[in-house]
Design a protein around this nucleic acid. Structure first.
Length: 424
RNA sequence: GUGGGUGUAGCUCAAUUGGUUAGAGCACUGGGUUGUGGCCCCAGAGGCUGUCGGUUCGAGCCCGAUCACUCACCCCA
């Protein structure tokens, strides 16, 4: 019989790796809640239309990467390729904007994009996503980037850098787009095939190009920063000023143009050189028009997303793997003793003492080996002799010392030991 | 969607110009100790060499196809 395999690009996270995930998620929840963000959980599937309108019809995500399917009743649905559109939808649908001038939400969960998998990129991947609605000033932009930097630190990841940029507003971007288009066509045919295409469809994206000759030609290109309208310039300068006062290191990088249509003004990415081709471990920015475009009130919005798989890959490079060990292993000899050990170990677990036992009646040597491998600090040994005397041996695996306890005190004794683990 | 690389035991890898019984380390099981872990010693179990086809007296090895994994392009977290 042939075994069924997991879907390409959709990975199992096995117990051996899951410690990384739990650590990252716990750190993220703590930091986000500290900054006033509240968790929201939205469905993994939405109406296809939501993503088409929210992300942009002409983006790669919508054009060729979506898991779209027809529901049995004829509706077109899609597995979410990102979280922002869903959170905006829920915010609008439940009228959450009514009770306060601004709101902060976060979500942690799986996203789906039908791309060819490679290192740090999978078809089901996981994001930590945060959104703020209702604040249009530069303060929240800076706070969000400051928070992201703190989050990296709390997770335990170093050697990453924060790159920021501004895309201007639709008004000044339109002016700049024409200036850039003129520059690009004046330069002639020196660009790579992709850039020749980009300069017609989405000229800003040429700055994303990795081809050396293109980068050279672009050195003298006009910069968006020099073509900002007065409001956009003031906003960007205030963001930078806040970051500097917060002591959050950053670099201005005009190449941060972001792939989704809805971004404007502030954009940022957290970048590393340790993940192969995938340099961005997180990114975000401002998208003031999106809520209105999705049928909601005309409120400003800022948000970011971080890739959990990428965080895990980085964390694996610099920290040792977290391990999960029981406090005690309950070894027994003989059927009667094993039956008693079974009952007592359930009592221990009921009291919150993490306990492992032998179910199979194996040799004591084999049980000791298993106990050692499990990392248990203590082994309880109950043989027929001990059982007859209503006693049990308590072995400290580290010091290799053993003492005899009355059988009916082990619950209290181990409970005390367990408590000392937290208040030594 | 396009291109490169790799598929041998649970894991990491060997296997002479194509040659007869496909090996090792780690992990696993049992024993060395009538009831005591890590180290050591002994033994055992574990494989349709990804799959299908071709060349050959003979294929883990050569050829083709296919599938999977992987890296990269595009794009993105």
């Amino acid at each position: 019989m042939e075994a069924v395999q997991a879907v390409r690009g959709m990975n199992d996270i096995l117990p051996e790796q899951v410690g990384w995930w739990q650590g990252i998620e716990a750190a993220a929840r703590k930091v986000l809640e500290n900054f006033g963000y509240r968790e929201m959980r939205t469905p993994v599937a939405e109406k296809l239309e939501l993503f088409a309108r929210g992300i942009g019809e002409s983006t790669d995500i919508v054009e060729k990467e979506m898991y779209a399917f027809e529901d049995r009743n004829g509706d077109w649905l899609a597995l979410r390729p990102e979280a922002t559109a869903s959170i905006v939808r829920a915010y609008v649908q439940h009228g959450l904007h009514g009770d306060s001038s601004y709101h902060k939400f976060y979500q942690i969960g799986p996203m789906f994009r039908h791309e060819r998998p490679q290192k740090g990129r999978y078809r089901q991947f996981h994001q930590i996503d945060a959104e703020v609605f209702g604040l249009d000033g530069p303060m929240i932009d800076a706070e969000m980037m400051h928070m992201v930097s703190l989050l990296m630190e709390r997770i335990g990841i170093s050697g990453v850098s924060l790159n920021i940029n501004t895309l201007g507003c639709p008004k000044c971007r339109q002016v700049y787009r024409e200036v850039l288009k003129k520059f690009l066509s004046d330069k002639g045919d020196g660009f790579c095939e992709d850039c020749m295409r980009r300069r017609e469809t989405n000229p800003l994206r040429v700055f994303d190009c990795k081809v050396k000759s293109c980068a050279q030609l672009l050195e003298s290109a006009p910069q968006l920063i020099d073509h900002l309208c007065e409001d956009c310039r003031a906003h960007f300068e205030a963001v930078r000023d806040h970051l500097e006062k917060l002591g959050t290191p950053y670099a201005v990088n005009p190449r941060i143009v972001r792939g989704l249509d809805y971004y404007m003004r502030t954009t940022f990415e957290v970048i590393t050189d340790r993940l192969g081709a995938q340099s961005a471990i997180g990114g975000g920015g401002r998208y003031d028009g999106l809520v209105r475009d999705l049928g909601g009130p005309d409120v400003a919005a800022v948000g970011f997303a971080m890739g959990l798989e990428r965080l895990v890959l980085l964390l694996e490079q610099e920290k040792t793997k977290p391990v999960r060990s029981p406090l005690c292993f309950f070894a027994s000899l003989g059927d009667q003793a094993r039956a008693s050990a079974f009952l007592l170990s359930q009592k221990l677990r009921e009291r919150g003492v993490e306990t492992e036992i032998d179910y199979e009646g194996r040799s004591l040597k084999s049980q000791m080996r298993r106990a050692d491998k499990s990392g248990a600090k203590y082994v309880l040994i109950l043989g027929e002799d001990e059982l007859a005397r209503r006693e049990v041996q308590l072995r400290d695996m580290l010091t290799k010392t053993q003492r005899i306890l009355p059988l009916d005190t082990i619950l209290e004794t181990l409970e005390t030991i367990e408590a000392e683990k937290f208040n030594p």
